[in-house]
Design a protein around this nucleic acid. Structure first.
Lengths: 145, 145
DNA sequence: TTTTATTTAGTTGTGTACAATTTAATTTTG
DNA sequence: CAAAATTAAATTGTACACAACTAAATAAAA
């Protein structure tokens, strides 16, 4: 049994590194007028063009309490449009605008910039990502909706 | 060159897992009336009894903008006391109270509960912690103060 | 030693996160 | 079909995070 010390805790480096990684992204994302969670939404939209709030929440493990105001801000800056689904009026679909689509060009080389600032190898990166994803997907997804 | 997809990004599982890990802690910490960052402060105080705000910020990679209100809340619930250092009036020292010290008993088996909810081995945990800490400590610590 | 620079906390403002609740729409059941 | 249950977003309230700035104290430099 380890003592209750900060540096014995598994969870602390996860918490600290996660925040420092978004700090690494910050200067690049600022140029695009994006925050880190907004960047994650853009990644989804660049891939899928249109997604419901629900689907975005499932992918990002975020609930509507976080997403609704975040998406409203992104709608104001013109990157996306939110509209009720005519088939099921409960659903709100999020659509990429032309402006949002164009932003991808300016974002395309952000990941390699970030990677170069981490002094780790490509293979270490890959295995780490896999390991974290594995643990994540073993957890019960309990985001409200 | 990978495409700009969410699941190609290294940083996303880090971000999502970090939040889900604090969600795992939440029911246990609620019983102690602690949030996750408050728990981290308590870990430091249980080990050191007294620390300056600055030192806590260095350990947790948090600045005074986050810590000042957080520590004030913890002072209100009686876990700690904040007092100016007589020798250097710029410094605010944070002291564990008797009540704060007693809380450790109630917290002692939280880590093993958390561990049991992760379906990973002890050795995997250890190597993961080491890997994340390694990356973290290679980053420039740039928290204001 | 007086000016200048640095250091430590605190303050203000914005943007997440998330619990808890509400509203409205759709399914499921009896 | 009508009542009950479920689902998807939105709302409200609290607590981080962090940038940018301020205030006060101390240290360094001229």
């Amino acid at each position: 049994m380890d003592k209750l010390h900060l540096h014995n805790q598994l969870c602390f480096p996860l918490y600290a590194l996660s925040r420092q990684m978004t700090a690494l992204y910050r200067p690049y994302l600022e140029k695009l007028d994006l925050t880190y969670p907004q960047w994650l939404v853009m990644l989804l939209l660049w891939e899928h063009e249109t997604l419901s709030v629900k689907k975005i929440g499932c992918e990002l493990w975020l609930d509507s309490g976080t997403l609704t105001p975040l998406l409203k801000r992104m709608e104001e800056t013109g990157l996306l449009v939110r509209e009720r689904c005519p088939v099921d009026e409960r659903v709100v679909n999020v659509l990429l605008t032309k402006e949002g689509r164009l932003l991808e060009k300016k974002a395309i080389d952000i990941p390699e910039h970030i990677f170069s600032e981490l002094s780790i190898s490509h293979s270490q990166l890959k295995s780490l990502k896999k390991e974290l994803s594995g643990i994540l997907n073993n957890l019960d997804k309990k985001v409200s909706g």
